[in-house]
Amino acid sequence: MYSLDNTQSLENEYNAAKKLGIDAELADKVNFPFKIKKALKFKNQAQFNPLKFLRAISEKLTIYENTTALDITEENSVVTKDGIEIKANKIVVAKHYPFLNTPGYYFMKMHQERSYVIALENAQDVNGMYIGVDKNSYSFRNYKNLLLLGGIAQRTGENEEGGAYNKLRKVAKEFYPNSVEKYHWSAQDCMTLDSIPYIGHYSSKTPNIYVETGFKKWRMTSSMAAAMIISDMILENENEFSEIFSPGRFNISTAIKMLLMIL
């Protein structure tokens, strides 16, 4: 994590990491084409291919593709686009965005944001994975012979005239004038009212339906936390984190007030 001017937030994060026993250190210099004020380094991290990871953890599962779920009945049946009903004792809605508006009212408790990435050849090896803590900062990491440059986060729908990729391309030419763009893509994720994911019962009225959403572009790690929490809930095991992530932490009136503040 790096900053061009906000060192206090990194120092607070460093102190918190030390209290938790996480191996971290503060640095004044990283392998960037520009100067930074401060960076917080976490050692022994892993960068891995999410598709290979998904393949390994799903080997014992039966997966049905092209089976869009449209509804869940009161009898705990998932209704597909072809009218087929799939009965289950427990149902986990692990979609990008929960598709049942009521109960739950997730459309009042979340909005969506998009960010952009371009993959560059002939760019610098940054020797790590970096994310900026300042507003309008960028992320950097290498994959094989490519540098992935990300940024330009914005609320979904606010890029009506386009131009987000061009902004990144301009930055790329400034930082790495000899680089060549090979690929570009965007990421979109759900943002909760308090930046903490919703993990647990879909609502107080659906004891056999669970949800995990609102990962704020940190799905790779947060989904693993969600898997452990929901597994414990289904098995009726105690989990000390379930209350923190509970979707029921907001009532409707609170959600309306906070939604209006966001808008």
Rank of each mutant, 00 (worst) to 15 (best):
K81T: 13
K205V: 03
N145H: 12
M258Q: 15
I131V: 07
V117H: 08
R249G: 13
E113L: 00
N89M: 03
S179L: 08
R219L: 00
I36Q: 11
I209H: 00
M108D: 03
K60A: 15
F99P: 01
I196V: 14
M228D: 14
H184D: 07
V78R: 04
E25Q: 10
K144S: 13
N208T: 01
S58R: 04
K173D: 03
K29A: 09
M261W: 11
R249F: 13
A94V: 03
G214V: 11
Y210A: 03
G83P: 12
R169I: 14
F107M: 00
T73D: 08
P197H: 04
D125V: 00
I229A: 05
K217I: 00
K170H: 10
L147T: 13
N6Y: 07
E75N: 15
Y138S: 09
K217D: 07
M191K: 04
E181C: 01
T80C: 05
I22P: 00
K37C: 12
S203A: 06
Q47W: 01
L54E: 01
Y2E: 10
T7W: 02
T156V: 14
L4F: 04
M220V: 13
H111N: 08
D71M: 07
F175E: 09
Q188C: 13
Y202P: 01
M129S: 13
P50E: 09
V79Y: 07
I199D: 01
P33G: 01
S115C: 13
D232C: 09
Q188D: 12
I86F: 06
Q124W: 02
K19A: 14
R141T: 01
E65C: 11
S137C: 08
S179K: 11
M233R: 06
S58G: 11
V180C: 02
G128F: 00
T73S: 14
S222C: 09
I256E: 13
E243S: 15
T80A: 03
A227E: 03
I209E: 03
A225L: 11
P207E: 06
D232R: 08
I230D: 05
H111M: 09
D134W: 01
S203G: 03
N239M: 08
D28I: 14
Y106E: 00
I118V: 14
T254I: 02
K60N: 15
F42S: 09
T192N: 01
Y116L: 09
L120A: 07
F99Q: 01
A187H: 02
Y130K: 08
F140S: 07
S246M: 10
Y143N: 13
Y176M: 04
E13Q: 12
N159M: 05
